[in-house]
Design a protein around this nucleic acid. Structure first.
Length: 743
DNA sequence: GCGTTACATATTTTT
DNA sequence: TATGTAACGC
């Protein structure tokens, strides 16, 4: 078994552990992904297990893809048939197959969180519930909690009036979803468990199939996921889970790290293996991380040992006047290190608690003329234009999808307003058909339609026109590939024109057009897979999943998104009370503990160098708010820290009297003399003449017309990003590709 | 049905 | 700041 030679003893023990229940407690950087991939390889290659008998669950789709390709590399064969994905995608697959047992069809749609909240909001309105007192967001999360605890509406324990409201809304909410052949994220898991519990024979068939089940990030499973695993492993009982209670950061989503304890109780014969060797960070970083996490209770203390020889550089702490300065400091430092040739752009990551913090950082990067890549933030799939177009595709895929129809029936504006919508909804209900079907009947038969006169609205003709379009798309979908279908819809609705006319600024409109082009480009990847797979992936694939690994550029991301990643140099920004820990976590010890874990996750992402930054004041809603240092900073021993001061100023004295350690940083420090310059960011490098500007229309001999999305000089070459109308996105060098600029 | 306006309000993380 | 929404007038 030479493929495990490169592993340490504990890792080898994990990979070759006996069948049955195995729990791997894996500290950060201890190579748990390697253990998982090697374990699968071990199963396939040495135990001869057929791939389709293996189910491996990861936290993101990206992790699943990577794992698959790594194992395939090791095995030297294709792993056709292996079930490798997230809990959600695995369940989605099962539900599509077994839809005949369920109260929805196999072509169900998956709602995103905006849709979910919107539905709750509607119900609250319809039911005349006070939306100030019962905020849609909160009610929704209560419903989500209920589902994560496997409660039906009638199972919701009623203690307060609020519970009653929740129950009522939950019930209605579920009706709306089922009426629309829709499920939400929680439903994917919830219905799968229901399926297994209500139909033992179905459970049996899956349990028999999955001889081996492996789970990554086990500490972030919730109750539904846990019972899912129990059901799925109920026949063979081979359950191999990997996790670290200290890295559990999804409590708010129902995750419960105590599943790790539960696992040991439920499977007393389990094998437990601890991985403590850390291959990632310097010992100094690990010491700091340990002293932070040790403050949490109810955990197994761990002794993280670095395999690296050098103890490592101290953690550099910087306090800025305000959040703008903080960003400038970070970008300046990065630029300095790159200029020194010490690091390349992709060595850096900047992590923060909330997405909103990325804005000032982005500005600082732009000013400095440095590239960066941003994970998440304004989600691509959450953008209005993307959601509109996906709603069109959903509608064509299933004309009875009323939620999607409602979304697009008047986008772009076609004179069908709320009144008309109400009117056709009522008629459809009376006729016992879906609104989409009625619409199409109007489209097909015009005045001869039996429904024509029924609809008491002046806009029947408009409805009929749209119905006709819909009929046409539905008929065409058989003959067209997905990209063609999408283009057809965009053309016939004049969607791009609508975007141009309805965007606040020119830039904004270019941005949104670029999104549309990006969506078009994406559909090309689904020419073969088809519309169904496309729609499912649109709902379940996260932004991290699709983030191109391009560019030698620093990465900006939230601490949550950083889980599982590592970088040579890590900045954690916003180490202020009410930011990290977040203000909403301060009253609940469990939540505060989770904030601490979040910080711990961030700290342990760093390989060589850590920077922590904070600011005395931050811009809130329009005005500045004073900030105090994060309480977590106190827990890092002085000797591991070095203070990067503000040249030319006296340090601000914090009023936090209890924070004695903190005050010990006051005064001149070595950090300050190390040449940190707080200079104003220089203007972007003067550029050699740039031929192309964003927004220009260009023509290429074979690719046809396109619009310039971006253009920049790299080295001496002008690189141009162009979205071609029919060929999607292309990156070209201006000097090589011949382009004509159209007026 | 739609555009304009004033006014309130403030979601942390993401499958 | 920035975003949504209720109300109004055309």
């Amino acid at each position: 078994m030479d493929f495990i030679d490169s592993l340490n003893q504990q890792q080898q023990k994990a990979v070759t552990a006996e069948l049955g229940q195995v729990l791997i407690l894996a500290g950060p950087g201890s190579g748990k992904t390697r253990v998982l991939t090697h374990r699968i390889t071990y199963l396939v290659q040495y135990l001869g297990v057929a791939p389709y008998k293996i189910l491996a669950v990861t936290f993101t789709n990206k992790a699943a893809r990577e794992m698959k390709s790594r194992v395939e590399e090791m095995v030297g064969a294709n792993l056709r048939g292996i079930w490798l994905g997230t809990f959600h995608s695995t369940c989605a697959k099962i539900l599509r197959r077994e839809a005949s047992y369920l109260p929805f069809g196999s072509n169900y749609i998956i709602l995103d969180s905006d849709d979910q909240i919107a539905i709750v909001k509607n119900i609250i309105k319809e039911e005349n519930i006070n939306d100030k007192q019962y905020r849609p967001y909160n009610i929704h999360s209560a419903i989500s909690n209920a589902k994560n605890n496997l409660q039906k509406p009638e199972d919701v324990p009623i203690q307060t009036f609020r519970d009653k409201i929740i129950q009522r809304v939950y019930e209605k909410y579920q009706q709306v979803l089922l009426n629309n052949n829709a499920v939400d994220f929680d439903d994917l898991l919830y219905w799968t468990v229901r399926l297994f519990e209500d139909y033992p024979s179905v459970r049996e068939s899956y349990a028999r199939q999955f001889e081996h089940i492996l789970v990554d990030e086990f500490q972030d499973t919730n109750l539904v996921q846990y019972s899912l695993l129990k059901h799925l492993s109920s026949y063979h009982g081979n359950l191999f889970v990997v996790g670290d209670e200290d890295q559990s950061i999804y409590r708010w989503r129902g995750a419960d790290y105590r599943n790790m304890l539960r696992f040991e109780e439920d499977f007393p014969k389990n094998t437990k293996i601890l991985l403590e060797d850390n291959y990632r960070s310097t010992q100094l970083i690990l010491d700091a991380a340990t002293s932070v996490i040790d403050k949490n209770e109810n955990r197994t203390p761990k002794d993280l040992q670095s395999t690296r020889k050098a103890k490592g550089n101290k953690i550099i702490l910087h306090e800025a006047y305000d959040d703008r300065d903080e960003s400038v400091f970070i970008v300046d430092t990065i630029r300095r290190l790159i200029n020194h040739g010490r690091n390349k752009g992709s060595d850096f990551a900047i992590m923060y608690r909330t997405n909103a913090q990325s804005r000032l950082l982005e500005e600082a990067f732009l000013k400095a003329g440095l590239e960066y890549r941003l994970v998440g933030a304004q989600r691509f799939y959450g953008r209005k234009e993307i959601k509109d177009l996906i709603a069109y595709l959903r509608l064509v895929h299933n004309p009875s999808d009323e939620l999607s129809l409602g979304r697009v029936i008047n986008v772009p504006k076609r004179g069908i307003g709320a009144k008309t919508w109400q009117s056709i909804s009522i008629s459809a209900k009376a006729a016992n058909i879906s609104v989409g079907d009625m619409l199409m009947d109007l489209g097909l038969n015009s005045r001869d339609s039996q429904y024509w006169d029924e609809i008491s609205s002046r806009s029947v003709a408009k409805l009929a026109y749209f119905g006709k379009q819909l009929v046409n798309w539905v008929e065409s979908k058989e003959d067209l590939h997905l990209p063609e279908l999408l283009s057809m819809i965009i053309d016939e609705t004049e969607y791009e024109l609508y975007l141009e006319e309805n965007s606040s600024t020119k830039e904004n409109s270019i941005d949104r057009l670029a999104n549309v082009h990006e969506l078009k480009r994406l559909t090309f990847e689904y020419e073969e897979l088809g519309i169904e797979t496309f729609l499912e992936n649109m709902a379940l694939v996260s932004d991290q999943d699709t983030l191109p690994e391009v560019a030698e550029a620093p990465t900006l991301l939230t601490l949550h998104a950083a889980k599982g990643l590592e970088y040579p140099v890590v900045f954690i920004a916003g180490l202020d009370q009410e930011i990290l820990p977040h203000s909403r976590s301060l009253f609940e010890p469990e939540e505060l503990a989770e904030e601490r874990r979040l910080f711990y996750v961030g700290l342990t992402r760093a390989e060589d160098q850590l920077y922590l930054t904070r600011a005395d004041r931050r811009s809130g809603y329009g005005s500045y708010v004073d900030c105090e240092p994060s309480e977590f900073l106190k827990d890092i021993p002085d000797e591991l820290l070095e203070f990067a001061g503000r040249p030319g100023t006296t340090r601000h004295h914090h009023k936090t009297a209890t924070n004695t350690k903190w005050n010990s940083y006051v005064g001149p420090t070595r950090g300050a003399s190390r040449g940190f310059r707080m200079s104003k960011p220089k203007a972007p490098k003067p550029r050699t003449a740039q031929l192309y500007q964003p927004g220009m229309r260009v023509q290429h001999a074979s690719w046809g017309e396109g619009i310039v999305m971006d253009s920049r000089i790299i080295g001496n070459e002008e690189t141009v990003d162009i979205a071609f109308e029919d060929y999607g996105f292309k990156k070209v060098l201006a000097s090589i590709v011949k382009l004509d600029i159209l007026k």
